[in-house]
Amino acid sequence: MSYAFEMKGASVQVGTKTLLHPADLTIKAGELVVIVGPNGAGKSTLMKLLTGDYTPACGQVFYDGETLGSWSAGEMAARRAVMPQSDPLAFPFTVFEVVQLGARLSSASQEEAKQRALKALMKVNLAGYEGRFYQELSGGEQQRVQLARILCQVWNPVADRIPRYLFLDEPTASLDIRHQLGILSLARDFVSKGGGCFAILHDLNLASMFADRLLVVSQGHIVADGLPREILTDQLMSEVFSVPIRVSQTPLTHHHPFILPQSCML
């Protein structure tokens, strides 16, 4: 599979604790892949394995047919950008400077980098925030700044016929509903133009609405992998989240499964 991320029997172990049991997985461009699962199930571990933060304890992780380790940091940076969960910043950089850090990598000139940074801030609805210090922003605003930064890093979803990927670890965690939808629409748009996206979400309804493919991780295992409609069932969800869950369906043609917390009372 060209330009895909592949795990073959890869597992993650820290000390004697196995965070992720050996698993096979292929992530290709052109689909928005979303992982869901309970806290501590190994979602972030899975993402960190794919981005090279963890080296597999057994098995291998490949990108474009070569092991991750054989790609340099620079080569990988040109092909995928990673949005971390939370990001304390050591010194007072301005919003513009943070976004610029991503833009400088992928732009031909300083001027282009600047324009790109400004456009990215517009995309995440933070135009006018350039001169603010990153530290004085709210959690949700900081998250959007980080998203703008990684959008700058892989500006075009496809470059030289090579698709690029976004790895998003809970990109909507501290956002209001407007920005949750806004950011996932950006990801959706990136994928529809040929890029790839791998996102961890906690909100099952957002996952149902935006995912092309849904992965369920539980206790260090990938327990399900398929269309949201196939995955979001009463039985599987109740089992994985250990709470009785009733899945409903939106009417009309979309058939988005949705879950009301009210239906999950013990």
Partner: peptide, 8 residues
């Protein structure tokens, strides 16, 4: 990690 993801 972020620095490495950015190609450093």
């Amino acid at each position: 990690h972020q620095a490495r993801h950015m190609g450093v």
